[in-house]
Amino acid sequence: MAESVDQLLARVALGDQAAFRALYAASAGRLLGVAMRLIGDKARAEDALQESFVAIWNQAGKYAAHRAQAMTWMTAIVRNKAIDSLRATPKEMPLTQTNDDGEESSHDVADHNPGPLQSLLERCADERLRHCLGHIEESPRQALLMAFYDGLTHQELAERLATPLGTIKAWVRRGLARLQTCLQGAEA
């Protein structure tokens, strides 16, 4: 019987290279999808995945100590590496930019059709999370999903959604607080 990702990662924590190969085979496709969604460029997404697997090997012992779900732990590593890459080189031009002569130019607001994000949420296998996000008002929910799936900062969300920065921060803060309350209620 094939070993689960949790079992493989536990063996990786003991320095087992064969388990590391099996772990990569079992998870790299999903994890590269996560990096690609954030970065939007396959070569850079693969660089982020490479850095992630180096970190997974080096930090697997630490994972063993806190016993998170292996896929949760690895996905968080990949998202962090991808966000670092994204912050170093954003995938799209900002809404306005200033050139060397001090002239400000503007770009069109990026397409933020809620359809694809909503369908990603609907495909989420975690029913509680889907339910709780579904109960957040549409605009804060949209901001949370864009932040999660597209890796946008508050400022970038404000530009994409053509909404004041203060409002965006309040949406994100309130959205996360409501999500936490709902998820904790479901746990109780």
Binding site: G29, L32, V34, E122, R123, C124, L129, L179
Partner: peptide, 18 residues
Amino acid sequence: WESRLMPLAGSVNSLAPS
């Protein structure tokens, strides 16, 4: 928070690495 939010990533399409 990782435990709460990471399941969202599960609905992203997989992509075969080189």
